[in-house]
Simulated scan of single mutants.
Amino acid sequence: MPSDFALKAMNAVHRGLLKLSGGRAGWHVSKMPVLELTTTGRKSGQARSVMLTSPVQDGTTLVVVASRGGDDQHPAWFHNLKANPEVKVAFQGKPEQPMRARIASAQEREQLWPRIVADHKNYAQYQTKTDREIPVVLLEQP
């Protein structure tokens, strides 16, 4: 499983690519659009941002997966949005906008998960690495 350091390093490299390319490169990874999710730290109260892929988009709703590479722990951003679902999202280089995050219901996850893993098998592999059910998160317009 990736360490916190490795995850932060990957995010820093990704942001560097976006900056160096003037935003022309880095908004797609593994055939998925990339977004920047900004949450409020549940302990610090400070803005925390992370680069994530969105394997499914339904209209204006963006779907992200709290996989953390199949780790047994949820990612920090997931804990943050559970504590405060009001988030900001910059999607494919567009200016950030306020959104509301919510964890998919069991029925929604049951419908979304096959769509996610059909095109992005890495998520299915992540699920086999952990006993926790990997959450699916919907980012919606307020």
Score class of each variant (00 low, 15 high):
residue 59 G to I: 00
residue 41 G to P: 02
residue 54 S to D: 03
residue 45 G to I: 05
residue 45 G to H: 03
residue 41 G to C: 00
residue 38 T to H: 06
residue 46 Q to W: 14
residue 48 R to K: 03
residue 68 R to M: 13
residue 63 V to C: 04
residue 40 T to W: 07
residue 68 R to A: 15
residue 47 A to M: 09
residue 39 T to L: 02
residue 40 T to D: 11
residue 58 D to F: 12
residue 51 M to R: 13
residue 43 K to V: 12
residue 55 P to Y: 05
residue 49 S to T: 13
residue 62 L to S: 01
residue 58 D to C: 14
residue 44 S to W: 08
residue 51 M to Q: 14
residue 44 S to M: 02
residue 40 T to G: 05
residue 65 V to S: 06
residue 42 R to L: 02
residue 55 P to M: 07
residue 61 T to Q: 07
residue 67 S to F: 00
residue 52 L to W: 00
residue 66 A to L: 09
residue 65 V to Q: 00
residue 42 R to Q: 09
residue 58 D to T: 11
residue 38 T to K: 04
residue 43 K to Y: 07
residue 43 K to S: 15
residue 62 L to E: 06
residue 65 V to E: 06
residue 39 T to H: 07
residue 68 R to Y: 15
residue 66 A to V: 07
residue 59 G to K: 00
residue 50 V to P: 10
residue 54 S to G: 06
residue 62 L to G: 05
residue 42 R to P: 04
residue 51 M to L: 13
residue 41 G to A: 02
residue 64 V to Q: 06
residue 62 L to Q: 01
residue 64 V to F: 08
residue 42 R to G: 01
residue 67 S to A: 11
residue 46 Q to S: 09
residue 54 S to F: 01
residue 53 T to C: 10
residue 40 T to V: 12
residue 61 T to S: 08
residue 66 A to S: 04
residue 52 L to A: 00
residue 59 G to L: 01
residue 50 V to L: 11
residue 57 Q to L: 14
residue 47 A to C: 13
residue 68 R to T: 14
residue 41 G to Y: 02
residue 53 T to Y: 06
residue 53 T to W: 10
residue 66 A to N: 02
residue 60 T to W: 12
residue 64 V to E: 04
residue 42 R to A: 02
residue 67 S to I: 03
residue 64 V to N: 02
residue 65 V to F: 08
residue 57 Q to P: 11
residue 59 G to Y: 02
residue 63 V to A: 07
residue 66 A to E: 01
residue 48 R to A: 06
residue 55 P to F: 07
residue 64 V to C: 06
residue 66 A to H: 05
residue 57 Q to Y: 12
residue 63 V to D: 09
residue 62 L to Y: 05
residue 55 P to E: 07
residue 52 L to M: 01
residue 58 D to H: 14
residue 39 T to C: 03
